[in-house]
Design a protein around this nucleic acid. Structure first.
Length: 652
RNA sequence: GCACCCAUGGCUCAACUGGAUAGAGCAUCGGACUACGGAUCCGAAGGUUGGAGGUUCGAAUCCUCCUGGGUGCACCA
């Protein structure tokens, strides 16, 4: 909202400078550090002083003298070295928030692909995966609010070692048949979780058993035989569970991209031809990488100093590495490959998936509900939500694009890196991953590992959060029918979890702790929801008392200016700045800015709630100002909750 | 060895990307009118921002070195 005002002010200022000095000047509009310096500040006179070789203060006075100002400006003061400080008309700002959209969709909306979640389809999702999915989901919501067209992809590595290992577990350790695997009861991903950890130990006992892995991997790559068929079944069942888990938190996808489809469609072969043609890869004829196609990285500054600056792209057995497949995939995302996937509807939830074959040759098959399939890929910007440990690989992929001559695409291929989630010492101990003996306090946090079966499963955590929510609702003596209780508990749990995952800066490792995650007080999702519920309660009570619950923007504008006290204005102005905060989050990919801003609004509102009661207030105008503030708050908070994906129950 | 990330009150984190008095939440202690619902609010206590230099009118923020912790540097993803 405020962005509009800022741009308008800049225009007025620039026009005035043109009229006075015949100079094309680009005005800056900032928010001053202290409120007594106004609500907005134009430091332009300071810059002009240099060009005009005159005192900045005088220039400021001159510009300010006959500035044609909109009615939402109350006063302009020339202060300090020559700053033009703008004091806004508080009622006008409040009215504007109530009458206009909080964000404006810029005309420059881009098509952006956001890839997130990307869990190996061989075990249950754990809380580290939740961080990824929540960040990706919130990022997508933010980008959409900023006017971009976002396509959400979830990459499924259905031909990799991790899946192969579970296949080995089912076939070679358990000796189960395809049908027996298909008949296993839910939760299938939990079963795989334990089995996967077992496979690691099984290999360790006898290294020759790794031959099973190799054979399975070959079968998956070439999509042949029983092993490939079993792998498909496992991947499908596990992915189904992952989607269910994420759906509990309101996280969805447009397209599931299968690695198998990249192989099946020979995407890599196409990319490889281009890499060879460009001389970006070479066949190693000696040394430890003999027989491999490698991409030399020594010339790139980013990789200088590496012991072995060459990256293997094609193994000596002729198979492609992950990086190779990912380069091809990135090219497809930008529409640079000259080929497309086949697509089919993934039966649940209106999600599409890529397939190797075209199934009947229809290039644009209809979805089950008759809707046309959207055009996937060919984005202008690509954002991959992948944890920071993969930074090196992501860099290699990017360099790959550069070497292919797609420099501008490489620039617009962004690795959204976030740090992992580890287990706090307390959590590790509670779960039995640390014995009481190896305390020593400096045991530190424990890294999660699917391979070792160390971690907190996402569904377990969600279940715990829901139980905790139920308890909390019950202590408040709320009598609710069972279905409403369940729905409310799920909402609160979702809010708690999503906020927990978004409030931390992405560059920081989260040491997961049960006590902290299950705390619904203070800086928590439920705290945010509660503030909105309170606003709703006010209106409900006003209605009961037969008092006005609505206030129109026109009425807000007409309220006496002196009623807008500083503390009320602080909240209104914070809401007005929401667009700027969200834009910053979209530009810097720092999602926590949105969460922090929401928290800031809630804290301000809760403080006012106690200080400025509405119901008992006798003066109609005072009540109206407070009501308007509550409406403004609710508008802002609701928008932020949407961005963060927090449900907003009426009561709790 | 090289590269990246982190270090802020007992604990978990902020600080609008270089701005003035370093802010919150947990935990601790003390309070809140017969309540617009205590998932709240007000207050107290707690900090020479890991250390040493440097740049700057101004540094938690930028630079250099050091210390401690994490991660990465596969023909695994």
């Amino acid at each position: 909202m405020l962005g509009e005002f800022r741009r308008e002010l800049a225009r007025i200022f620039e026009q005035r400078v043109r009229d006075l000095y015949a100079i094309d000047h680009t005005a800056i509009v900032e928010v001053p550090p202290r409120r007594d310096l106004g609500d907005l500040a134009l430091p332009g006179a300071l810059q002009l002083a240099r060009d005009l070789k005159r005192n900045p203060r005088q220039i400021g006075e001159e510009i300010a003298a006959e500035l044609e100002l909109p009615d939402w400006v109350r006063e302009v003061k020339v202060q300090g070295a020559g700053f033009l400080n703008i004091y806004l008309d508080r009622g006008s700002v409040a009215a504007a928030i109530l009458s206009r959209p909080l964000f404006e969709a810029p005309e420059s909306g881009q098509k952006i692909i956001v890839e997130h979640t990307n869990i190996n389809p061989n075990k249950a999702a754990h809380i580290g995966h939740l961080r990824n999915a929540v960040l990706g989901d919130v990022l997508s919501r933010v980008l959409r609010a900023l006017g971009h067209r976002v396509e959400i992809q979830n990459y499924i590595d259905d031909t990799g070692v991790q899946l192969a290992d579970v296949v080995v577990g089912f076939l070679d350790i358990r000796g189960l048949s395809r049908d027996q695997i298909a008949a296993l009861p839910e939760p299938f991903d939990y079963y795989c979780w334990d089995l996967y950890a077992e496979v690691g130990a099984w290999y360790a006992e006898d290294e020759s058993r790794l031959e099973h892995r190799r054979a399975t991997l070959q079968a998956l790559e070439h999509d042949t035989g029983e092993r490939a068929e079993v792998a498909r079944l496992i991947a499908r069942r596990v992915v189904k569970r992952h989607l269910e888990t994420m759906a509990r938190l309101g996280i969805g996808y447009d397209l599931l991209t299968h690695e198998g489809a990249i192989l099946g469609r020979n995407f890599f072969a196409k990319a490889f031809e281009q890499l060879k043609a460009r001389g970006a890869v070479k066949l190693e004829e000696s040394g430890k990488n003999v027989g491999c196609w490698v991409m030399p990285l020594a010339e790139s500054e980013e990789f200088a100093g590496l012991e072995d600056p060459d990256k293997v792209i094609v193994r000596s057995d002729g198979t492609a590495t992950y990086v190779a497949k990912d380069i091809a995939y990135q090219m497809w995302k930008f529409g640079l490959l000259g080929d497309d996937f086949g697509y089919r509807y993934w039966d649940e939830a209106g999600i599409w998936q890529t397939v190797a074959d075209d199934e009947g040759g229809d290039e644009r098959p209809l979805a089950a509900n008759g809707e046309k399939r959207p055009e996937f890929g060919a984005a202008e910007r690509v954002i991959n939500v992948i944890d920071a440990r993969q930074s090196y690989l992501q860099k290699v992929v990017r360099v790959g694009l550069e070497r292919l001559g797609f420099e501008s695409q490489a620039e617009r291929s962004i690795h959204f890196a976030y740090e992992m989630v580890s287990l706090s010492t307390a959590a590790a101990r509670q779960l039995g991953f640390l014995s009481d003996e190896d305390d020593d306090e400096d045991a530190g946090s424990l890294e999660m590992s699917g391979r070792k079966g160390i971690g907190v499963k996402a569904d377990d955590l969600i279940d715990q959060l829901i139980d905790k929510s139920r308890e909390e609702i019950r202590t408040r003596n709320r009598e609710l029918p069972d279905d409403e209780l369940d729905a409310l508990a799920a909402d609160i749990a979702t809010a708690a979890l999503r906020f927990f995952m978004t409030k931390a800066t992405t560059t920081r490792v989260i040491a997961f702790d049960f006590e902290e995650a299950l705390n619904f007080e203070g800086e928590s999702g439920p705290y945010l929801l509660y503030s909105l519920v309170r606003a709703g309660n006010i209106w409900r009570r006003l209605e009961q008392e037969g008092l006005a619950t609505e206030i129109t923007p026109e009425q807000v504008t007409e309220l006496p200016a002196e009623l807008w006290q500083d503390d009320l204005w602080d909240l209104v102005y914070a809401v007005a700045q929401t667009d700027g905060r969200v834009e910053a989050a979209g530009e810097t990919l720092e999602i926590s800015l949105v969460a922090r801003h929401a928290l800031d609004l809630a804290q301000k509102f809760n403080a006012l709630y106690h200080k400025h009661p509405i119901l008992q207030e006798k003066d109609d105008n005072v009540r109206a100002v407070r009501l308007a503030t509550t409406r403004v708050f609710s508008t802002g908070m609701r928008a932020l909750c949407d961005l963060l994906g927090l449900p907003t129950p009426e009561r709790m």
